[in-house]
Design a protein around this nucleic acid. Structure first.
Lengths: 201, 201
DNA sequence: CGGCCTAGTTAGTGTTCAATCACTAACATG
DNA sequence: CATGTTAGTGATTGAACACTAACTAGGCCG
């Protein structure tokens, strides 16, 4: 009889802590992306993850820790996209670990495309901006710096790009972030990595 | 006797509403830059402006309105810096209103320098990031878009730059914002507009 | 069945915060 | 000095919020 008292979960009731963590993390990225670290309440996240608000604190000690975890997650996603793009454009490497010189541009281009595809989801860009904005917090800043360094290193290794073209690549990316954030371009058409506002030639 | 009850302002007592508004706006930019729209309390701003917290609401109807005013203020500052830089590098114009073709690069370069000088204050960059981050709010977004458009138009008119180099300029700027936000470069040396991390050649 | 661990909840605490209210002090003008 | 206006404050309020504590319920193994 006690089963009929409250609105119950219809079926798939109990999940492992790992699965829940995943769910919460996803919900957190979505909410943080829109409202930022301080503009997002743990209740918003809980609602989206379909759990009670206090249970969040069993999975993540503090709201900030959840935010930090979300940052890691987002950098992971970007890096994964880059790796996938790199593999996709792989050709024979003249010396193992060395990218053929003529391939550099093509690889960067492919990664640019991959990044744009990622950005069409919007969520990721917006969250990135929130992460940068929260960088007055020491913990956030040091994490973002570490991951940013890692990302740059990854791109360097994957493409073999040197400073000038690498910087151009990064700058393009940052401009895209801003443009996407303020919705200057309806990023519907995924193929905008040569678009008027971002493209340079 | 009632006059002796509380700690009184010693001297420089009353200011005009205009002066106060200015003071509050300055304080708001400083605080918002560090903690963002939602991370900043009106009391922080009040303390910095050396007034009581409720008085803020006599000068600005809501906290968000204050934030919006701060956005306007910051774009104003950037535009002023650009204008000054343009005047400074002015030479004879072949046709009135038309910038000499060879001058374009020099002018953009000068503006880049001006922007870097502006960024050394840090406050401005940080606030910019906060403004972008707050763009999920309709009012914020539409304002930022409007001012961004205006700024791009201004740069175009001042330098006569065409799409490719204009975009390069903007992208550089955005990369610099991020780099400055996460403190990758100690922006001490003001002359970094050709620096390794930002420069393209 | 019964003990036991883990998933998950309800209820609550202390605090913070934007915004309002009701009031006082300083100045201006006839 | 009376009257009106503008600058400014202290006290308060009602809501929201991060986080805690204490309890409940589902599943597994003996």
């Amino acid at each position: 009889m006690s089963t009929a008292t409250l609105g119950r979960k219809p079926a798939g009731s109990r999940q492992s802590a790992g699965e829940r963590r995943e769910q919460v993390l996803k919900a957190a990225v979505s909410e943080f992306a829109v409202h930022g670290l301080h503009g997002t309440s743990t209740e918003m996240i809980a609602k989206r993850a379909k759990i009670s608000q206090p249970y969040i604190f069993r999975l993540f000690p503090t709201k900030k820790d959840l935010f930090l975890a979300a940052i890691e997650r987002c950098f992971d996603r970007v890096e994964a996209a880059f790796k996938a793009a790199a593999v996709h454009t792989d050709s024979v490497e003249p010396h193992p670990g060395q990218v053929a010189r003529g391939q550099v541009g093509a690889k960067l281009h492919a990664m640019g495309h991959a990044y744009v595809r990622l950005l069409t989801a919007r969520e990721l860009v917006l969250f990135q901006m929130q992460a940068y904005a929260a960088c007055s917090d020491e913990d956030v800043r040091s994490l973002v710096r570490r991951r940013w360094d890692g990302m740059v290193k990854l791109v360097t290794e994957l493409t073999g790009a040197e400073r000038p073209e690498l910087n151009l690549f990064l700058a393009r990316g940052m401009l895209m972030n801003v443009v996407a954030s303020i919705g200057l371009v309806p990023v519907k058409a995924a193929d905008q990595w040569g678009h008027e506002v971002i493209g340079f030639a």
